[in-house]
Design a protein around this nucleic acid. Structure first.
Lengths: 238, 238
DNA sequence: TTCGTACCATGATCGCCGTCATATCCCACC
DNA sequence: GGTGGGATATGACGGCGATCATGGTACGAA
């Protein structure tokens, strides 16, 4: 494991990415020769809104947030994890990135130049399908986000956020609890639901005291999913 | 509620739709034989959230709103006009419609069964490109909507809404004013920015008195775009 | 150690806007 | 003419959450 040439490591990364599963072994090798891996640290910017989209980027390791900005303050549009393409729409249409992308953890990216990406699309129609499916998921999640943003007390929105996270990356913990292994600062929670740090802190502090959602080390623990569901549905008989 | 007509009228409709421009005359005729036109009245539902997506639908005449619902109240996700496909993502992936679609005016739709749609996609790669481009536009507008929803005083959001509308469908009026020829009730304005009727009414009433934005018969008149821009940027030194 | 910085926490204040109530206008319909 | 429903308009009231301020904790750098 210690000594690897660059493209061998790339090849291994390719095998871990679902959207490349359908490729022949030959094509996987060829792809490895064309693409590169890049490592980023927490807080690094992959790109900023307005930059030209010259590469297809897929996450091999780590997490990336897509950040839009509206007059000074930020909104997190979506979170991406390993195996997911980031900013594929912009590359596909060769338009400037509509939002910035920032690493939330040490991250490794698979990077493929635009022209090679299109060649791949031509050779593998099902590959194109996989891309479209990812875009669809993204689109649906944005749709839901708009619906949730609507009015709703912000405590409800935070509850929806964590239910969503629990579903996407939750693992069973002790005594029937759910572990959400992701490092999210209060600020990031605020940006995800569209509120301020202070308000996010107030909600999470109270939940911590009440045992609804406990903040751990680089993770959250959800003792009872049902309590959150109640809050999310507004049946909060305060 | 839906009247179907025969293929001559259909053929004429096809010629008016930009995404079919690239088709050969032959294929246009064949398409006309496969598709149908349907007429709807104001308030008719094209489909409801959860319905299966069995047809590609493109607007020939009229306007359609895409409505998501979050716990009782509605949010308008997007407005569509002539030449634009509605719900294309759902058809493409054959997933249930994520939101309802409702006519805002008397509307004529071009309707093509799913299987014929895919056949078309296979024959015309550039046609697929056109579809993707439309989806991208939609995606970008949703992105912006999420950013706008963020906090922002609602007067600012209404201003952004009408600037957006002015850009998309504004026509020059008298004395350098801009006309926005669309019939939007106060309720619909409220659903578009995510607020209540009363608040929307208060904003529009005040703007009417101040001459910022005047409500006319089935249209809005914007005497000075700059005044709106000032409000939208929060530089409202009231 | 002492800074500096980032993050978390909590209180006080205030204004926007959601909610409820009422009134007017207009148009369809009987 | 009367009636009823929908859209528009306006006022009163109260709460949620933004804003400002202050302080505590952890951690790395000088």
């Amino acid at each position: 494991m210690a000594l690897e040439t660059r493209s061998e490591r790339t090849l291994q990364a390719i095998r871990t990415i679902p959207m490349f599963r359908g490729l022949s072994v030959d094509d996987q090798s060829r792809l490895a020769a064309l693409a590169t891996l890049r490592d980023y640290a927490r807080g690094d910017s992959l790109w900023r809104a307005g930059d030209p989209a010259e590469n297809l980027t897929v996450i091999v390791r780590g997490r990336v947030k897509l950040v839009g900005s509206s007059g000074g303050s930020d909104v997190i549009l979506e979170l991406f994890g390993p195996g997911e393409p980031v900013g594929a729409i912009a590359v596909y249409n060769y338009i400037p990135y509509p939002a910035s992308a920032v690493c939330m953890e040490p991250t490794t990216l698979f990077v493929l130049p635009r022209r090679d990406y299109f060649e791949l699309l031509d050779r593998y129609p099902e590959f194109a399908r996989a891309i479209i499916r990812d875009l669809t998921k993204l689109f649906l999640s944005l749709t839901r986000k708009v619906e949730e943003m609507r009015g709703q007390r912000i405590e409800v929105r935070v509850a929806q956020l964590f239910l969503n996270l629990a579903e996407r990356m939750g693992k069973p913990g002790k005594n029937g609890s759910i572990e959400i292994p992701i490092a999210l600062s209060r600020q990031e929670v605020a940006d995800l639901v569209g509120t301020t740090v202070e308000t996010a802190i107030r909600v999470l502090s109270r939940w911590g005291r009440d045992g609804v959602l406990v903040t751990g080390d680089k993770r959250f623990v959800l003792p009872s999913r049902d309590r959150l569901v109640e809050i999310a549905e507004g049946k909060d008989a305060r």
